[in-house]
Design a protein around this nucleic acid. Structure first.
Length: 853
RNA sequence: GCGGGCGUGGUGAAAUUGGUAAACACAAGGGACUUAAAAUCCCUCGGCCGAAUGGCCUUGCCGGUUCAAGUCCGGCCGCCCGCACCA
């Protein structure tokens, strides 16, 4: 007589038990191996969503599994708490960003705790706590001293909706990554992180990150964008202060040069614009064009002839026109190029538009240098150099080397490695962020706030009535005396990009209460993070910034660690079907019902509903399911099990009600199979060895081996399948009866222990029901008995000419002769072979026999 | 354009180094139990042929290597993701 498993009661009970005992509270212990599991911490937007549920479930499986394996597991949680939504809420609802944020944190903390995560909550913090950001300010000052951050005037990305500058990484297809507004170019003085100081290191160290997805490594590699080439100095025909410095990856084509071009934002272009209204108009036109994909693809190559001329570095008497061109970018190389139309498609298009010479200097093998004509398609392959003076006859690679040598000798340039990566713009014109701890003084310039005066705390009394930065118009906050000379100065009223906050939080978790960012002892014990888990959307931004920050911390003597995340797992999104009514309005899934004929209608009025694509859950499409509702109706274990069972965790999954119900049925089934058999079990610890139970025991131990490997390799959907199989097998065995009690106990205990990381509450409940006194959480992971993993017999596949014709069970390890004669004896096989002689017999030990006739 | 990934039943998916394709689950259909429902249990479930042991076909398409190909190679087709006037 068994009661239905009461998940509500059980989940609360065990969560309370773990909290009460401090089960997941950890301290550094040099005598034990550590394992640091971290999921990307959430932004406290209001409520948790399915993406959170998936991410934290995955991380919790890792944490609990590693814990059972004997590791000292650090599994903390915190809040990425600064950011624009808090300010928007302040403007829309009149609540203070701080109270909005902390209220959301309280709500979301409760939701996460209902999931039964094995978190050490004693380490929790929010990045908007002054006790956190004071250390960020302190490290910023350290970086400033080492020239790892700097302030510079220049063209930056301006988001006109969010009223702030953005880093290059936050401009997607010419638009602000959050607001979607077309980005404008503005000339401003801003703070930058000198990430380019580590370009080569960040690139080459990617090779060491062998537990990162290849895709993420490739994305970072492309973003860093290393290229080999040369800088070349072109002297102007009329004397000027500076030469025209260009970057090229094809110095070998220098004799094919027919023009130079500079970007509209190039300092020379700006200088010209001051005297030449036509130039100014063209520059303005270029800026209007924008940088969206569409604009770039459809735009013609256009230029403005500055009437300036430069001298060819090698060909005496050859002069090249200098254009301002719309296809040259200030953000790459030097913002200036030389154009060689024959061997670059853009240069060729430009040459055709402006009637410039096209001189081929790389000739394909077999072509005649005198007659070779590129037509409308630039020739970019390797070939032999021609029409190129001292380069004639060389191939491209040798040509590059020769030109670079000559340039250097003549003082007209040098070989160079160039990176696409730009420095990280870290200041934002926003209130809800970490204040930048410097004072601007007319006499002393930029003066750091003395460390003993940190933190520079945000003022609470702010007004969001008008647009712009509330810190800037605060009546008193920014007015302070210069820490250096004592005269009136002004605080920097910008705050940090919130990616600064998230670039080192993983280190702070190691010593959350220390009076420095992180202590050496804690940092060096726990770091790097052994397994980091999060969405692929941070492949560049957060993951690259954190790698930079770790290096900057190393160079300012905070920690002797380079890479923050030794292992990275990127989980897929949670999708759901979308629905629209007859007017095209989106409908929540709860408002839609399916008819028997498979059509969908509105639940309230029966109107027809169109089923749309299965898409990422989003508020705008109304296809979200609240995890808390699922936990309330079916339990956290059900939600966790479903999210693990559906498909591989790196892939996108579809959330379905049917899937949830399947998981719920399984949870109850496991409960039943244990509780209904309790009476026939001997005491815990009884020796399960019993010849009569050998088959069952083999299955049980094979399951231990398989599930262990699957959990190790993030194959959670397979681990789930293995457990279904095990439960099916044990269930069939108990129905047949005659299972020795000790072996049955072993089987049931194994099921409970293996589901522990995935359905921790149920497992804890059943473990206790099985008469165990310790918590399952404190119980070691089961070990497979090797002797039970090798079975006595195997099923051999028998093929004739490579086609399966039968199978035969024989003793494992049987030799070829035995296997072949057993195979021949199978009737169907014998018929296919007939009276022919096998030309060849392939035997694969314990796998198959193939007769080739 | 460049780079990366993927393509297997009605669906999500399994398939160590090439070695019995479709494990496991969902959905569907049938049955048992029940006054009924829920819950639970049992059976069927890639296609075609066959009463059946079984046979033929089947992993996007075409070709190749091999005793043997979902897996390796070449060429197509389709989808997804990232970057993109990068000199």
């Amino acid at each position: 007589m068994s009661r239905r498993y009461n998940f509500r009661e059980s989940e609360q009970k065990w969560q309370a038990a773990w909290t009460e005992r401090g089960t997941f509270t950890v301290t550094a212990d040099r005598n034990r191996p550590k394992y640091y599991v971290l999921e990307m911490f959430p932004y406290p937007s209001g409520r948790i969503h399915m993406g959170h549920l998936r991410c934290y479930t995955l991380g919790d499986v890792v944490a609990r599994f590693k814990r059972a394996q004997g590791f000292n597991v650090l599994h903390p949680m915190g809040w990425d708490a600064f950011g624009l939504p808090a300010e928007n809420a302040a403007m829309e609802k009149g609540v203070h960003p701080a109270s909005w944020t902390y209220e959301n944190i309280a709500t979301m903390r409760g939701q996460l705790q209902a999931m039964g995560l094995s978190i050490d909550w004693s380490r929790e913090f929010a990045t908007c706590d002054p006790s956190y950001y004071r250390h960020e300010q302190s490290m910023f000052l350290d970086f400033l001293e080492k020239d790892l951050v700097y302030r510079q005037d220049g063209w930056v990305n301006w988001d006109p909706i969010d009223n702030t500058v953005l880093a290059n990484e936050q401009v997607i297809d010419g638009k602000g990554w959050r607001s979607g507004a077309p980005i404008e170019r503005r000339r401003l003085s801003q703070w930058f992180g000198r990430i380019t100081a580590f370009s080569e290191d960040l690139l080459s160290a990617l090779e060491t990150l062998d537990r990162w997805p290849a895709k993420v490594r490739v994305m970072q590699e492309n973003w860093i964008g290393r290229s080999e080439g040369a800088f070349i100095e072109f002297a102007f025909t009329e004397p000027r202060d500076t030469n025209l410095r260009v970057y090229t990856t094809r110095p070998d084509t220098i004799f094919g040069a027919s023009f130079c071009a500079i970007a509209a934002d190039h300092p020379l272009a700006e200088e010209l614009a001051a005297q030449d209204s036509e130039a100014a108009a063209f520059i303005e036109e270029c800026r209007q064009l924008g940088t969206s994909e569409e604009a770039v693809q459809t735009a013609d190559k256009r230029g403005y002839d500055t009437r300036l001329r430069v001298k060819h570095p090698f060909a005496a008497g050859v002069e090249l026109p200098v254009y301002i061109a719309n296809f040259v970018l200030m953000g790459y190389g030097t913002g200036a190029i030389f154009g060689c139309p024959a061997h670059d498609q853009r240069d060729l298009d430009f040459a055709h538009a402006y009637d410039l010479p096209v001189l081929p200097v790389v000739i394909p093998d077999g072509a005649d240098p005198k007659t070779f004509d590129v037509g409308t398609e630039a020739f970019t392959d390797d070939g032999k150099l021609a029409n190129s003076d001292f380069l004639d006859g060389l191939d491209v690679a040798a040509g590059k080397r020769a030109v670079i040598e000559r340039l250097a000798d003549a003082g007209k340039g040098e070989g160079a490695t160039n990176y696409r990566l730009r420095d990280w713009l870290v200041s934002r014109q926003r209130y809800w962020g970490c204040p930048i701890p410097v004072v601007h003084c007319d006499d002393c310039g930029i003066v750091p706030v003395p460390k003993d005066e940190l933190p520079v705390v945000l003022p609470d009394d702010i007004d969001f009535e008008s647009p712009g930065n509330p810190l800037d118009r605060h009546p008193t906050w920014k007015h302070v005396d210069c820490p250096s000379c004592g005269k009136p100065g002004v605080r920097d009223t910008d705050t940090f990009d919130t990616f600064m906050d998230s670039s080192w939080y993983f280190a702070r978790f190691c010593s959350p209460d220390a009076d420095k960012p992180v202590t050496e002892a804690d940092g060096e014990y726990w770091l790097p993070v052994d397994q980091y888990i999060g969405g692929i959307e941070h492949a560049i931004l957060h993951l690259l910034y954190s790698r930079f920050f770790m290096r900057a911390m190393r160079d300012t003597d905070h920690l002797a660690i380079d890479e923050p995340f030794a292992g990275l797992f990127t989980q897929g999104m949670v999708n759901h079907a979308t629905y629209r009514d007859s007017k095209g309005e989106w409908l929540e899934p709860q408002r839609v019902v399916e008819n028997d004929d498979g059509s969908f209608v509105r639940a309230d009025n029966g109107d027809a509903v169109t089923v749309g694509r299965i898409e990422k859950m989003s508020k705008s499409k109304k296809n979200t399911i609240d995890p808390t509702d699922v936990i309330a109706s079916y339990g956290a274990d059900t939600a966790r099990w479903f999210i693990l069972s559906d498909n591989p965790p790196e892939r996108d999954m579809e959330w379905t009600d049917a899937g949830v119900q399947g998981a719920y049925r399984f949870m109850n089934r496991v409960s039943r199979i244990v509780l209904e058999n309790l009476e026939s079990l001997p005491e815990p610890g009884t020796n399960p060895s019993d010849a009569a139970a050998e088959d069952l025991r083999c299955v049980v131990h094979q399951a231990i081996a398989d599930v262990t490997e699957d959990l190790e390799r993030f194959h959670y959907n397979r681990a789930v399948a293995r457990l279904y199989e095990l439960v099916n097998t044990v269930s069939a065995a108990t129905n047949d009866g005659n299972v020795p009690g000790a072996a049955l106990r072993e089987a049931l205990e194994t099921i409970v222990r293996l589901i522990g990381p995935m359905m921790p509450h149920l497992a804890e409940e059943l473990w206790r029901a099985l008469g165990q006194e310790a918590l399952l959480c404190d119980t070691a992971w089961p070990r497979a008995d090797e002797t039970l993993l090798v079975s006595d017999s195997v099923t051999l596949a028998i093929q004739v000419n490579g086609k399966l014709r039968g199978t035969v069970d024989i003793a494992s390890g049987a030799d070829k002769d035995t296997a072949v004669s057993a195979a021949r004896a199978v009737q169907n096989v014998a018929e296919f072979i007939g009276d022919k002689d096998a030309r060849k017999v392939i035997h694969v030990q314990d796998k198959l026999v193939n007769f080739v006739v």
